[in-house]
Simulated assay, not measured.
Amino acid sequence: MRVTEKGQVTIPKNVRRHLDIRPGSEVEFTFAGDGALLRKVEVSSEERSREVRELLDHIRKHKGSMNLAGMTSDEFYKMLRD
Rank of each mutant, 00 (worst) to 15 (best):
V52C: 06
G24D: 05
Q8N: 07
D82E: 15
Y77D: 13
D20Q: 11
T72L: 00
R22D: 12
G64C: 00
M79G: 06
K40M: 00
G35E: 11
G33V: 04
D82Y: 04
R2C: 06
E51I: 08
T10Q: 08
S49D: 14
L55E: 12
T30E: 12
E51C: 05
E5D: 14
E5V: 12
R2Y: 08
L55P: 08
V3R: 09
E42L: 15
A36R: 10
V43I: 15
S44H: 01
P23H: 08
S65H: 05
M71Y: 04
S45M: 09
Q8K: 07
G70N: 03
A69Y: 11
G7T: 11
R22P: 02
L55V: 12
R48L: 15
E42A: 14
R2K: 14
K78N: 10
L80V: 13
K6I: 09
E26A: 11
K61T: 13
M1S: 13
G35W: 09
S25A: 07
G7Y: 11
E75W: 06
K63W: 07
S65I: 05
H62Y: 12
L68S: 02
L38G: 02
T10M: 06
A69E: 14
R48G: 13
E5A: 12
E46Q: 05
E46R: 03
G24M: 04
K61R: 15
H58C: 05
L19D: 00
D74Q: 14
V43P: 01
R39S: 01
L56C: 10
L55A: 13
K40V: 01
